[in-house]
Design a protein around this nucleic acid. Structure first.
Lengths: 222, 222
DNA sequence: TTTATTGCTGTGGTTTTCCGCAAGGGTTTG
DNA sequence: CAAACCCTTGCGGAAAACCACAGCAATAAA
C-alpha cells in the first residue's frame, strides 16, 4: 500500500525532474508537478472537484515569481491555501532551508507532516518521509532533526526584530524611539532602545553595532 | 556529433539526478557524477590518466562540505584545479547564483565556456549551452545575459571590500586605520577611512553606516 | 611651466552613540 | 508587608562617529 496520487511543487526544473523521477521510481502511479504556487493550488482544487484528490503534496518553500502576478508567492502560502482547500492533504516540505524558526513554524503552525532538507541524500530522506507520512507519522530528516534540537539558538523576538529592522533601514536611535512611540510599541525611550541594542550585542557577542547588524543579517534573522 | 563523456559535479542529489537524466536524454553516452569537489577532481585526473578524459564538466558553484575535510570547497576552486589538470576540458557552470561579479569572474578569469542559471527552464538552457559549447562558442542563459548587461552595478573594489569587511567584523574606525597601517594598505588615516565610508553611504544611498552594512551584506557583496 | 583637479590627511566642533548611576514602577518571593 | 528583583527611563559624561574646512602632494590639463 502506498500513495497513488502526488503533486510536486518546485520551481527549478532540474530539481523538479529529479523529484518526479524519484517518486515514479517508488511506484507511485500519478505524479504531477507544478512550477508555480498558483498553478499547484489550482491543480489541487481541480483534482478535488473531479473527485480524484491528491493524497500528498511535496513542496519547496521558495519560488521564483519575478515574471508573474501571483496570489501565492511562497511555499508557506501555498501550504496554507492547500490545507484550507483540502484539509486531509498530507504535506511534505522539501527545501534547502535549515533555519530552526522556519522549520518549527511549518511543523507547529502549518502542521506539515514532514520536513526534508535538500542535500546530499535528500531524495533518500524524501523516500523515508513518504513512508512515514503514509503511516500517519511525522518525519524530519536528520539535518532538520538536529537543527530542531539545537539549544540556545539565537532567535529574535518580535520587539528585537523590529528594532533591528529599523536600525538596518537607516533609523537613528532617537528616530526609532519616535517611531515606537508613534506605533505604541514599548519600551520606546531612547535609553531603552540603547539598552536593548547593547544586550543584543552581548548575546550575539558583537563588538560594535555594525557587527551586530552584519551578524543578524547574514544569519538570515532579518 | 556530440559530447560522449561528461562529468556532472553537483552536491544535492535531487538536482544531480535531474541533470544526469537530462544529459543521458540528450544522447550522451557516458554521464558520470560527483557530489564532492575533491571527488570530481579525482575522477578527472583518473580519466585523463587512463586516456579517456572527460570532454565536458557541468559544475555547480556551492558545495556542502560540512562533514568533510576537503581541499576543494567551491565550484570555483574545482574549475581552476580541473583546468590545470586538463586545460582542454570544456566547462559549463550551472548554478542558482545570478550575481554579476561572480558570473563575470567565471567567464573572464576562469574562462568557463558557459554560464547557466538554475531556474524554471534551467535544463533547457543547459541543453542549448551544451550545443554551443560543443561548437566552441561561449554561452550564457538569458538570465545571466541580462544580469551581465546591467549598468551601474554597485560593486566594491578591493579596498572598499576590505574596509567594509573590517567594519562588519567589529572594527572601529581607528582600529581599521591601525590595521591598514600595519598591512601597508593606503589610504589609512582615520579621516580617509571616514571619508570612504561616507562616500559608500552616498553611492548606496544609505542614511546610516548600519544601513550601509545591512545593504552590502544582503546584496551579497561581503 | 603654470594652472586646475583630485585625493589624502589633520584640526576643531557638532552629533550620535555608549555606558554607569540612580530613581521609580511593577512583579515575585520570603 | 517587606525585601528582592527586573525593567524602564532620565541624566551626565566619555567615546566614537560625523562633517566642514584647509593644507598638501601627486597628477592631469592648458
Amino acid at each position: 500500500m502506498k500513495f497513488t496520487k502526488v503533486l510536486v511543487a518546485e520551481d527549478t526544473d532540474s530539481n523538479n525532474f529529479g523529484i518526479v523521477a524519484k517518486l515514479k521510481n517508488l511506484g507511485i502511479d500519478t505524479v504531477e508537478h507544478a512550477q508555480y504556487c498558483d498553478n499547484a493550488h489550482l491543480k489541487i482544487k481541480k483534482a478535488l472537484l473531479v473527485g480524484e484528490p491528491y493524497q500528498l503534496l511535496v513542496s519547496d518553500l521558495s519560488f521564483d515569481n519575478s515574471n508573474r502576478k501571483s496570489k501565492l508567492s511562497s511555499g508557506e502560502e501555498l501550504i496554507e491555501a492547500a490545507k484550507t482547500t483540502q484539509p486531509n492533504l498530507k504535506v511534505i516540505v522539501f527545501s534547502v532551508i535549515d533555519k530552526q524558526t522556519i522549520i518549527k513554524n511549518l511543523l507547529d503552525n502549518l502542521k506539515v507532516n514532514a520536513y526534508v532538507c535538500k542535500g546530499l541524500n535528500g531524495l533518500n530522506e524524501l523516500e523515508k518521509a513518504i513512508e512515514k507520512v503514509y503511516q500517519n507519522q511525522q518525519f524530519t530528516c536528520p539535518v532538520a532533526t538536529s537543527v530542531l534540537k539545537q539549544q540556545n539558538v539565537l532567535a529574535l523576538n518580535k520587539y528585537e526584530q523590529q528594532l533591528l529592522q529599523l536600525l538596518a533601514t537607516g533609523y537613528k536611535q532617537n528616530e526609532i524611539s519616535e517611531h515606537f512611540k508613534l506605533h505604541k510599541i514599548a519600551p520606546n525611550s531612547v535609553r531603552s532602545i540603547e539598552a536593548h541594542i547593547s544586550k543584543l550585542k552581548d548575546t550575539f557577542d558583537a563588538k560594535t553595532t555594525h557587527q551586530l547588524v552584519y551578524m543578524v543579517t547574514s544569519l538570515g534573522l532579518l
